[in-house]
């Protein structure tokens, strides 16, 4: 297995507040990792740091063989990022949004590729419609299309289900499974445990800026993901720290 993300001793502070505290994290190529944690655990900060939007204060980050922050442009080429905001322009239609991002990523002659992406995310028939007329679920699917327009090796998703209704969330899950089945590495943050339980192949618990535990889906205890997470958090709060290796 090839390690595609390697993070060592990552520290990120905002003023005096240390959000990531000597965090260590690694992901193998093709894995679908769910980062579990409550609000304020540092999930978004970790993904923003991995995606080069936020500079680390200390530590080493290597993604697809390139280091951050020194080789951020090369790293960004390898990444697709989806956040709870769609990062789309409401006054452009679906096709124009993808065209714009395609150009930013240096793609050329990519009309057919755009059609393929729109087909994949189920929006081919709405390609000429302005994004501001889309529902939240459609916008989020197009956001995934935007994130994979340049065929990235790694997909980072920050709470992608936020604000979606049940049907839209199910459609998003199907799309993510389809993307993962194509061999892409996916790292997703979530606190929606029942949903990620069916998606990810590995579950890491991020609590108070440190990854405390990592379990493969097949090794999860019978009582489920929520109980596993709760047991780790209770253990930490009680003073111990579970440091299982993945």
């Amino acid at each position: 297995m090839i390690t595609i993300i390697e993070v060592r001793n990552l520290i990120k502070r905002f003023g005096h507040k240390q959000v990531l505290r000597k965090l260590n994290f690694s992901v193998q190529q093709g894995e679908f990792v769910a980062l579990l944690g409550s609000n304020g655990a540092g999930k978004t900060t970790l993904l923003r740091t991995l995606s080069s939007l936020s500079k680390p204060n200390y530590g080493e980050i290597q993604i697809a063989g390139y280091y951050l922050p020194g080789q951020s442009a090369q790293v960004r080429k390898k990444l697709g990022v989806v956040s709870h905001l769609p990062l789309l322009y409401g006054d452009l239609n679906a096709e124009e949004n993808l065209k714009f991002y395609g150009r930013l990523y240096g793609l050329s002659d990519f009309q057919n590729h755009i059609e393929e992406i729109l087909q994949l995310v189920g929006l081919l028939k709405r390609k000429k419609d302005l994004v501001r007329t889309f529902s939240r679920g459609m916008q989020q699917r197009l956001a995934i299309g935007r994130a994979i327009i340049h065929d990235p090796e790694v997909l980072l998703l920050d709470e992608p289900h936020t604000g979606l209704d049940q049907d839209a969330a199910n459609m998003l899950d199907t799309l993510l499974q389809e993307i993962a089945s194509r061999g892409r590495t996916v790292v997703m943050t979530s606190h929606d445990f029942p949903r990620v339980a069916n998606l990810a192949t590995r579950f890491d618990v991020l609590y108070k800026g440190i990854i405390h535990s990592s379990k493969f889906a097949k090794d999860l205890p019978q009582h489920g993901l929520l109980a596993y997470y709760q047991s780790i958090v209770d253990e930490i709060d009680a003073g111990g720290e579970n440091q299982d290796a993945a």
């Binding site: 080069s52 939007l53 442009a73 960004r76 080429k77 990022v81 990062l87 789309l88 990523y105």
Partner: peptide
Amino acid sequence: DRGCLDGLLLAPVD
């Protein structure tokens, strides 16, 4: 407001 600044900054470009 729509987070698009992040979208721009994520592009692998100067």
